[in-house]
Amino acid sequence: MMQQIYPAPAHSYRYELNKDFQFAAAHYVPHEEAGACRRLHGHTYFANITVVGDELNESGFLVNFQDIKNLIHKRFDHTVLNEDSLFDDMDPNHFPTTEAVARKFWEVIQESLNKLPNQPRCLQVFLRETPTSYVVFRPRKEDFQ
């Protein structure tokens, strides 16, 4: 994987963990304005997940790097995103656009983090769909409620 520089979210937490990984997936965007993206096609996505917190867990980790990767990679690698229950071809907020995929990944990750006693937070999902196109999703404070 190529070394990349990601935009850094501002925060005052003691620890910041970043996990890079890639996965292959296909999708289509079910809307007339999507042009050629209306047809099924695939990407090798690159993701960077930023997790922050003030306390380490009983193993000395903020979060285990592998746990972050597994939440996304095991579920989405070599799949058709449209077929996952997170996405809906009838609701534009749930089409598998890069924007929505980044948001959905945040939801999956944060739901898992909410179960941890040290309460880490996912502050950013960087998702590169092609070498020249990427999205950054950052939740608002109220999203953590």
Rank of each mutant, 00 (worst) to 15 (best):
L62N: 05
S59A: 15
L123A: 11
N118V: 09
Q124W: 06
K69M: 10
D88F: 10
F126D: 09
F65D: 09
H94G: 00
G60M: 06
T79F: 07
T97V: 04
T79A: 06
F65I: 13
F95C: 03
K69Y: 08
F76H: 02
H78P: 07
N64S: 13
H94N: 08
Q66E: 14
F76T: 02
E55V: 15
E111M: 05
P92I: 05
F61P: 10
P92G: 05
S85Q: 12
V125N: 09
W106R: 01
C122S: 07
H78M: 12
D67S: 13
W106G: 02
H94L: 11
N82L: 04
E111N: 10
T79C: 07
N57A: 13
H73L: 14
M90P: 02
A100Y: 03
D77L: 05
F87K: 04
V80N: 03
S112K: 03
L86M: 10
N57E: 12
N114S: 11
V125W: 09
V101N: 02
L62K: 07
A102D: 01
L123R: 15
V125E: 10
T98A: 07
Q66S: 14
Q119S: 12
K74P: 01
S112A: 02
D84W: 02
K115L: 13
P120K: 10
F61K: 12
H73I: 14
D54I: 14
T79I: 07
L123C: 14
F105T: 04
C122D: 05
N57L: 13
L123K: 15
V63F: 06
N93M: 05
L71M: 14
P120V: 07
I72N: 05
R103G: 02
N118S: 04
N82A: 04
D54F: 10
V125M: 10
P117S: 08
T97C: 04
T98K: 01
S85H: 12
I68V: 15
T98Q: 01
V125I: 15
F61M: 15
T98C: 04
E111V: 03
K104M: 01
I72E: 03
T97H: 05
K115A: 14
I68Y: 06
K104N: 01
K69N: 05
P120Y: 07
I68W: 06
V52Q: 05
Q110V: 00
R75Y: 00
L81S: 10
F95W: 07
L81H: 07
C122H: 06
C122P: 06
M90F: 12
W106H: 01
E55L: 13
N114E: 11
Q124G: 11
G60S: 11
F95D: 03
N57S: 13
I109W: 02
V108D: 00
T79V: 09
K115G: 05
K104H: 04
M90L: 14
T79S: 13
D67W: 11
W106S: 02
L86D: 11
A102Y: 01
S112E: 05
D89Q: 13
F65N: 10
K69H: 08
S112T: 03
Q119Y: 09
L116R: 11
D88L: 11
S59P: 00
K69P: 00
N70C: 08
A100R: 08
G53C: 04
A102L: 00
P92A: 03
N82Q: 05
H73F: 15
D77Q: 09
T97K: 06
C122W: 08
G60N: 08
T97Y: 03
D67C: 10
E58C: 12
D84S: 06
T79Q: 12
N114L: 09
S85Y: 08
L113P: 02
R103F: 00
V108A: 00
